[in-house]
Simulated scan of single mutants.
Amino acid sequence: MVEEQNEDTRALDLLNDDLTDVSPEEIRAAQAALAAQLETADDRWRRTAADYDNLRKRMAREIQTVREQERQHTATAFLPVVDALDRALTFGVDLDEGVLDGMQAVRAQAADALRALGYPEIVIDGAEFDPQLHEAVSVVEDASVPPRSILAVTRPGFGTPERMLRPAAVVVTRRPDEE
């Protein structure tokens, strides 16, 4: 390391000196030493720039992952509220119409909050059973409807096939001769 510094210093000294008494070999050696220093510095700069770019990209991915985890954590914590509102609406048929409407409005707000977090309520109307979106909790034999038809929803589901919070729990049909 000391020898490198001496050579580097010698190269710089040669450039600053009066070059009349310096041999061409010494000038070429000084130029070569400076070119090597420049190449080393350029290589270090490029590696540092690449490391910084990789760090920036990795941090952006990690931030996105943490955001998604927190979004899912918040939505998961909100699911019991939606379930409680659904149970209250099921058992609240004898309630005053205003109270029932208010509870339905609060339930709609809860579903909207989950949608805003990226977990829309899974639509069941006329849907056929899809294992990515639904969880079959019961199977009913019924020849009057096509097999794999959803008869009832026992628990609403939230999410998309790419980002599932909870599948919808459903009652599914099958033909009497299927197993």
Rank of each mutant, 00 (worst) to 15 (best):
L34E: 10
E162S: 15
Q5I: 15
R56P: 05
S144Q: 05
R61W: 07
T74E: 01
L151F: 01
I27L: 15
V81S: 06
T76M: 04
R46Y: 09
S149F: 05
S23G: 12
V171E: 08
P156T: 01
E128S: 13
E4L: 15
T9V: 09
L117A: 07
T74K: 00
A111N: 14
R46I: 10
D17E: 15
E179D: 15
V93Q: 12
R56F: 11
F91E: 15
E179W: 11
L117V: 01
L34Q: 07
V137I: 14
Q104S: 12
I63A: 08
A127V: 05
A169Q: 15
E135T: 07
A127F: 03
P24L: 12
L55A: 14
G102N: 05
V123R: 14
D86P: 04
G157F: 03
L14M: 14
A77G: 11
D130V: 01
L117W: 00
R175V: 04
D112N: 09
Q132E: 15
R44L: 10
R107H: 14
D21P: 03
E4C: 08
P146C: 13
Y119D: 02
D142L: 01
S23Y: 05
V137H: 01
R58N: 09
D17G: 09
L14W: 02
V172S: 01
D112M: 11
E141A: 14
L85D: 04
R44E: 12
A127H: 02
R47S: 07
V170L: 06
N16C: 13
E162P: 05
I124D: 04
D94E: 11
A49Q: 07
F158H: 13
R155P: 10
E26H: 06
V139Y: 00
V106N: 00
L89G: 00
Q5S: 09
E179V: 13
A11G: 08
G157S: 03
Q69P: 01
H134M: 00
V172L: 07
G118F: 03
D51R: 11
Y52R: 14
V66Q: 04
V2Y: 12
D96N: 10
A168H: 00
E25C: 01
E135S: 09
A33N: 11
D21F: 12
S149L: 06
D43L: 10
E26Q: 05
V153G: 03
M59D: 10
S144P: 00
L100Q: 09
T20E: 14
L55W: 12
N6K: 13
D142A: 00
L95Q: 12
A35F: 08
D21Q: 12
A60Y: 02
D18Q: 11
V81P: 02
D83R: 10
V99H: 09
A36Q: 09
F158M: 10
D42N: 10
D177P: 00
A143F: 04
T154S: 13
E97N: 05
R148K: 14
N54Q: 08
V145T: 15
D8T: 13
N6P: 02
T48A: 14
R10C: 05
F129V: 02
P120Q: 07
L34D: 08
D112F: 06
E97P: 07
A108L: 09
A110N: 07
D96H: 05
